[in-house]
Design a protein around this nucleic acid. Sequence first.
RNA 1: GUAGGUAUAGCUCAGUUGGUUAGAGCGCUAGAUUGUGGUUCUAGAGGCCGUGGGUUCGAGCCCCAUUACUUACCCCA
Length: 459
Amino acid sequence: MKPSIPRGTRDFGAYDMRKRNYIFSIIRKNFELFGYEPIETPAIENISTLTGKYGEEGDQLIFKILNSRLHENQKKELLTKEFAKTLQTAYNSPELTNKALRYDLTVPFARYVVMHHHQLTFPFKRYQIQPVWRADNPQRGRYREFYQCDADVIGSNSLLNELDLITLIDTCFKELNVPVVLKFNNRKILTALAEMVQHPDKIVDITVAIDKLDKIGKEGVNAELSANGIDETAIAKLEPLLDFKGSNAEKVQILKNVVGTNEIGLKGIEEIEYLLNAATTRLKHLTLELDITLARGLNYYTGTIFECKANAGTFTPSILGGGRYDNLTGVFGLNDMSGVGISFGIDRIFDVMNELDLFPASIQAQSTTQILFINFGQHEATYCLTIIAQLRSEGIACELYPDQKKIPKQFEYADKKKIPLVCSIGSQEMESGVFTVKELQTGLQEKLSLAQLLQKLKR
RNA sequence: GUAGGUAUAGCUCAGUUGGUUAGAGCGCUAGAUUGUGGUUCUAGAGGCCGUGGGUUCGAGCCCCAUUACUUACCCCA
């Protein structure tokens, strides 16, 4: 049998893991620096927890888990009917599948907040770093299993939370040295637009169409709007938005012209202006760009929405997403819990950093082992174990070659694993207590006592 | 779901209008070197040319189907 792994999943070698852990550690450190606390939730959720939260498209991308032991189920007739139904429509049968892999970390978080709200202190700031799964068609930068790193505040309406998150994003990407542009928008603007063109029910269609502006152009957007049953006078009203270019301030002015007479629109503009004024002077690294065409597909966003893209190179996928959701906990029975959060996509950050060669030189394809002990035989190996125990108690990573193979083989092992030092202890060394130590990179070899060796390794 | 591309050694890939026994580099094994890796030299192993059918005297190459991988659309981290 030829081994393989499912499409869109990957194995990670030691070198890649060092790089990934570098990204994880910076993000985790800053999450904690900003006062977020860690939680974890199960990979598997009840499917009813997940469905209906991500939009029609998103629901289809949930990885479903087939119920076990269906062959032992007595309700054969019902199961057969249910299966026939799933073959016809997008219907999900709880008789056939009642569990699924989590699609993101935000919805499980909302579920967590509702289940544990009696023991939580609000506003609750949590971070969560775990893999999520999407039954998507894989391609470059798109995986079916990937990690999200989420930070959310729930139980506070204050825009200071948005500001806090923007600063957090700025801090993380500055430390990672990734050039990024943070695009943001406000769903209230989109809601106002839908109201003003007399199509409040079409908000999703309108936002999705506008979101495609930079890909399909103004004519494309208009065509799509019209295809979705939006009439021409309404399309004409939206037109100024599609045309505008320029500074953030100029964009705000255009927004005022278009939706300034609408109550929700005004509120959205107010929020946007606040964030622009408050954030711009505080940012140390990233570019903040108001992007009216930013819509985001996830259903639950209601206010500020965020998206980050790399600002250099040819590969610029979305590497962060987020936004405010006013009532995500509502479906689980807890109202008046507004939250706002962001999600770093570390797999794509990894890809971008690889392409731009942004990993620091200290992260090398090198073993954590500092010194390898050559195995000359049982007697010598036993002697080495004592030395090794002493080095390890001093915090020095070392290992003994386990088999008594030819010496070149053992050196080759050190070379391939990129262990910097090799220590040979044969009968002469055992007798004298002075060991032969070779630096593989330079080829230099010296005779060292245990004390001298320790000194060398500790600096 | 829709459309394009690719499939030849462990890996990356050559392979002429369709013509004898399918190649290279890297890697692997052994030796030169029985207490020294990386460099060098020598030798060796390793392929049902993705799978199934067709055309032909003859197919890695042409045709059809199929599978896997991949890119793009959609959506997203």
